[in-house]
């Protein structure tokens, strides 16, 4: 019987504790989320001690992913929403599918973006494990 490890998510930015709670709730027992400072959170992902990083700032454009970009590299991060760009399932799915591990969005999108990101991460994990199980 396969026991699946929880997905470890770090949340950083405006009201990170609420972000972490929303992520954990959205994960339905499959996600462990913690609120951390942006540099500390990104370093945990870099060291493999966390799987994904989610970050917010007021504009969604710069501060949300600045530390993650510096520590993980630009190819690992993606902005999924800003006040002028709605968070869409398609954009999130594409970024998760590309293997990006840090996602940024505007603070006001917290309640819509996080459940979508978690949903796509879980679907991606399920697909990977399904493929592995077929081998």
């Amino acid at each position: 019987m396969n026991e699946t490890r929880s997905i470890r998510v770090v949340a950083a930015g405006v009201d990170a504790p609420t972000m972490a709670r929303i992520a954990q709730d959205a994960g339905g027992g499959r996600v462990e989320a913690a609120a951390l400072g942006d540099m500390q959170g990104a370093r945990l992902v870099k060291k493999g001690q966390a799987d994904y990083y989610i970050g917010t700032c007021w504009s969604g454009g710069g501060g949300a992913l600045a530390a993650a970009t510096a520590i993980l590299g630009a190819k690992q991060v993606g902005i999924v929403g800003t006040p002028g760009m709605v968070v869409t399932e398609e954009r999130v799915r594409t970024m998760v599918g590309e293997g990006r591990i840090a996602f940024g969005f505007a603070y006001e999108q917290t309640t819509t973006a996080i459940p979508l990101i978690i949903k796509e991460i879980l679907a991606h994990r399920d697909a990977q494990e399904g493929r592995a199980g077929d081998r």
Binding site: W58, S59, G61, G62, A66, T82, P83, Y107, E108
Partner: peptide
């Protein structure tokens, strides 16, 4: 980051009504 963006002459960012 904002000062870098402004100095570079990037397009203006969208104003958030919430902010």
């Amino acid at each position: 980051i904002a000062l870098t963006r402004i100095n570079r002459g990037d397009p203006p960012i969208e104003l958030s009504a919430v902010a």
